[in-house]
Design a protein around this nucleic acid. Structure first.
Lengths: 129, 129
DNA sequence: TTGTATGCAAAGCGTTTGCAGTGAT
DNA sequence: ATCACTGCAAACGCTTTGCATACAA
């Protein structure tokens, strides 16, 4: 457990809290580096593990893409993955996801998650021109 | 493109076709090794890339877990992830997934995927005792 | 002042690649 | 007999770890 409040951790938390989408380690490092030059990559990994263990952030991983992390309280939404740029966007969650008709016996269904695929605004603009 | 049919590739394809769930590289290697001792891990990686490029298999990755692969034609289903053993199971897809109410402007929605979470039969039995 | 958290560099580990040998055609 | 595919081992790149130092308390 953590005993001290440092500029590094504060910066990392802040970047994650303000991000509008889940961030990969490299994205998080780049963003944190702008605010705190010299911040080491190892500190990012250590902070991410701590925050993850503490439940402050959750991880998200899709289709061969690197693992991404986002602030846990922001997690009442779904994700949209752009086929073109591969970025992951947060979007409002659907109202109600149906359970499959036939469910395997003995399995306990506790939750679900939907991922939407398509093309984001930027990439759509770019490909139209 | 591939020019020759080898025991290695046949075995790898067969393992994937017969699997009832997506397999990680290590799982695939272990299974193929039983049928073809000495099969190298590099061959698994090369085969997986080929099959993936050819569209014969698709990849699946969830929450920090290693990337898994499954035979593409088997892919009219959803996935169920067991919170306890972390295995990924294939289950029948839901009939219809709703789009979110509010969608970001300019985004093109082309498809979706649902992941269910819970506890599988084995783990449920085990935890009851 | 004390000792936790950091930065750096080395170590680890899963994945990819180069190359010589094997085996499908 | 040819040369694509494989196995082995080296190379790579990302993640983790060890250790001396910086700095929060």
């Amino acid at each position: 457990m953590r005993h001290r409040t440092t500029r590094q951790l504060e910066t990392i938390e802040s970047v994650l809290q303000k991000a509008a989408r889940p961030l990969a380690i490299a994205e998080l490092h780049a963003a944190a580096l702008e605010r705190l030059p010299g911040l080491g990559i190892a500190t990012i990994y250590r902070a991410v593990r701590e925050l993850s263990d503490a439940g402050s952030i959750v991880s998200v991983t899709y289709a061969g893409q690197p693992q991404r992390f986002e602030w846990a309280v922001a997690r009442h939404h779904s994700h949209f993955i752009c086929h073109t740029c591969k970025r992951v966007f947060d979007i409002e969650a659907p109202l109600d996801v149906p359970l499959p008709e036939k469910r395997p016996k003995g399995f306990l269904f506790q939750g679900d998650e939907v991922i939407y695929y398509g093309q984001c605004r930027d990439c759509r603009k770019r490909s139209k021109k």
